[in-house]
Simulated scan of single mutants.
Amino acid sequence: MSAGAAALTDAQATERILQFLRQIGLEVREELLPGDCFLPGIRIVQGGLVVDRLQLRWPGDLLHEAGHLAVVPAALRPRMDDALAQLPVIEHGGETEATAWAWAALTHLQLPSQVLFHEGGYRGHATGLRINFEMGIYLGASGLVHAGLAWLPGPDLAVGAPIYPRLRQWLRD
Rank of each mutant, 00 (worst) to 15 (best):
L129H: 01
G47C: 15
G120A: 13
A102M: 09
V159S: 08
G4K: 09
R168W: 07
A126L: 02
V115Q: 07
Q46T: 13
H125V: 00
F38S: 15
Q46S: 14
P73W: 06
P162V: 01
G47E: 15
T96N: 12
M1N: 10
R29Y: 07
V89R: 09
L87S: 12
G121R: 15
Q19H: 13
L33N: 07
A83G: 06
D81T: 14
G93S: 10
I90K: 14
G48H: 15
Q169L: 02
W103P: 05
R168Y: 11
D156N: 12
P88K: 11
R29M: 04
I17W: 07
G67P: 07
Q23N: 09
A98P: 08
E27R: 15
L18I: 13
H64Q: 12
V115W: 09
A3V: 09
A158H: 09
A74R: 07
Q169W: 00
A6S: 08
R43G: 03
T107N: 05
H146F: 09
A5L: 04
A6L: 08
Y138I: 04
P155Q: 00
L56Y: 06
R79K: 15
P162L: 05
L32R: 15
G124W: 03
A70F: 11
R123P: 02
P34Y: 01
A147Y: 00
G143V: 05
W170F: 14
L8C: 04
R79G: 09
A5H: 04
T14A: 09
V72L: 12
D82M: 12
A70D: 13
F117A: 15
T127K: 13
H108R: 08
H68K: 08
G148Q: 08
Q46E: 15
A158S: 03
R16C: 10
V145C: 06
Q23T: 04
L144E: 01
L33E: 06
H118D: 03
E65C: 04
Q12K: 12
E27Y: 14
G41N: 00
R77L: 11
L111G: 03
I131K: 10
R123A: 14
L39P: 00
E91Y: 13
H64V: 04
G128S: 14
F133G: 05
D81P: 07
L8F: 09
A102E: 11
A5Y: 02
G93D: 09
L84A: 10
P165A: 02
A11P: 01
D36R: 14
V89F: 06
V145Y: 02
H108N: 05
V159R: 11
D36W: 13
L111P: 00
W151L: 07
D173N: 12
Y138S: 02
R16I: 11
A13F: 01
V50L: 15
P153F: 10
D36G: 05
Q12M: 13
T127Y: 05
A70G: 14
Y164T: 04
G41D: 00
